[in-house]
Write a protein that binds this DNA or RNA. Sequence first.
DNA 1: TCCGGTTCATTGTAGATACAACTTAAGCAT
DNA 2: ATGCTTAAGTTGTATCTACAATGAACCGGA
Lengths: 152, 152
Amino acid sequence: MERKLSKQETAGRMAHECIAVRVRLINRVITALYDEALRPYGLRTSQANILVAVALMAKARPAEVSRSLRIEKSTLSRDVELMKRNAWVESDPPNGGRSQTIRLTPQGQKLLVKIRPSWEKAQAEAKLLIGEDGEAALRQMASRLGFGTPAS
Amino acid sequence: MERKLSKQETAGRMAHECIAVRVRLINRVITALYDEALRPYGLRTSQANILVAVALMAKARPAEVSRSLRIEKSTLSRDVELMKRNAWVESDPPNGGRSQTIRLTPQGQKLLVKIRPSWEKAQAEAKLLIGEDGEAALRQMASRLGFGTPAS
DNA sequence: TCCGGTTCATTGTAGATACAACTTAAGCAT
DNA sequence: ATGCTTAAGTTGTATCTACAATGAACCGGA
């Protein structure tokens, strides 16, 4: 006989099993780490991620960046807008539009190189927090979600 | 001789090694999963997490919830405000103030039980996406970050 | 060539997130 | 009792995030 699950049982199971609560907590902690390291340069972790993604793509179309990082296109649009305002990236055509490509400006390229030491610092701290196993597991999970695969 | 690291090398290393980019990507994918499952009930994953946390604490003080989920106090303040507006939680004293406690309303308790099937569905999908190993690793990492430990 | 569906990018709206600054209350020490 | 220091909570501001709706350009087939 299945009986109705009580509030306490439900809450208990959710707290002890929920994948989302853990992923989100880890995300907040790790992001805070990188954000702090990058703060002197005026960019956030999200922007750094985009900067790197764009730097690696020969002709970065927004839709492509959006897919590779699993960021909603509208989110990316606004993030890129901020990065344009800071003159770290530019697009061709400059007004945007359909088949635009995004690339780093010289300042953006300089920034990328400049933030590297801070990134290494945050990276080292993150490794300490999550451990070797954690790092490997994240790599595995991200790969499983298609990250790092040359576009579908 | 160490030579200067080029933009491409920097970008490449960051993309291939960065913990943050992976954590954040996984977070977006997983959160989207739970958000979609919970959408019919009008609450987001973040709110569900808080709902569960509050349900499990006898006398949930905001600062305590904030610490246990590693959410900034100001963030929690606004999340709770929304949840009050939906009458899922209430506080005593009702206007907030310093030593308030938060608890679920009867509607909040009903909601918690109601969302369980949707949560189970999202949970199952999440397991499929990240795998047994991923789940175990997340549990390990979160535990390492103090999640699940009875308050410091 | 034109039509219709699809993809792409932006804008409207709403919530999640955090840092800084501020207000207030609690705890402590004398 | 009376201050002092610290913790708690809120508010201002900015960014990140996504869904929905819109407009525009691409791409196939008739």
